[in-house]
């Protein structure tokens, strides 16, 4: 059990240290943890995102807490959260000492010039993994398309992009809406 706790802390420590660009940036790391350890499945990850978006608090913290809980109960939740925030605390306490020099430093600016597109790319890849399960029953080449899911996704895209009134609504509304659609139309 101690080994599992130590491993859990280390995995989330790395996530906290290398995930750049907010909550969703932890996603590729969670997929990687899921693939290597089997602590939680890809489906559970998708559910975690939904719960994390629908509850208060930072999304990255919520996802770490949730995955820690699934892996090792309440102690797991505390340990994974501690792992995620420890690098942030250390880095910020160090950076705070030489505040202005830091975000004008050309090496820091250069590193983030490369890190931002990489982070976007890894989140795109995580989205593709989920899209394969949701829209193609886990196989892009199989030719089976989940028509219900495609229609719902199309509706959500219209709501979140084109209609002025609905565009501003909080994601929790769309999560609740999709849950209702899922129940009524038996997804």
């Amino acid at each position: 059990m101690m080994m599992l706790y130590a491993k859990l802390f280390w995995e989330f420590f790395q996530t906290g240290l290398f995930a750049v660009g907010g909550g969703m940036a932890t996603l590729p790391f969670l997929y990687s943890i899921s693939d290597r350890t089997g602590w939680f499945t890809h489906e559970q990850l998708a559910d975690m995102i939904a719960v994390s978006e629908s509850t208060p608090g930072a999304i990255g913290v919520n996802m770490a807490t949730y995955s820690g809980y699934i892996t090792a109960g309440l102690p797991g939740a505390v340990i994974s959260t501690a792992g995620l925030i420890t690098p942030s605390i250390i880095v910020i306490l160090l950076v705070a000492a030489f505040l202005n020099a830091f975000h004008e430093n050309r090496y820091v600016v250069g590193a983030f010039y490369g890190l931002r597109p990489a982070s976007s790319a890894m989140i795109t890849a995580a989205g593709l993994i989920l899209a394969r399960v949701v829209f193609f029953f886990g196989d892009f080449s199989g030719g089976n398309v989940n028509v219900k899911a495609v229609i719902l996704a199309g509706l959500l895209l219209v709501f979140t992009h084109t209609i002025a009134f609905t565009r501003k609504l909080h994601p929790v509304i769309w999560i609740a809406f999709s849950a209702a659609v899922g129940i009524v139309f038996e997804f």
Partner: peptide, 27 residues
């Protein structure tokens, strides 16, 4: 199970929207 299957579709769209937002600042 049905509810979460519906929610997963929404999560796909939310990730897609997050990527669009990041993309315009990063690329």
């Amino acid at each position: 199970k049905h509810a979460f299957a519906g929610v997963r579709v929404c999560v796909c769209v939310l990730i897609f929207n997050a990527v669009i937002k990041l993309f315009s600042k990063a690329i």
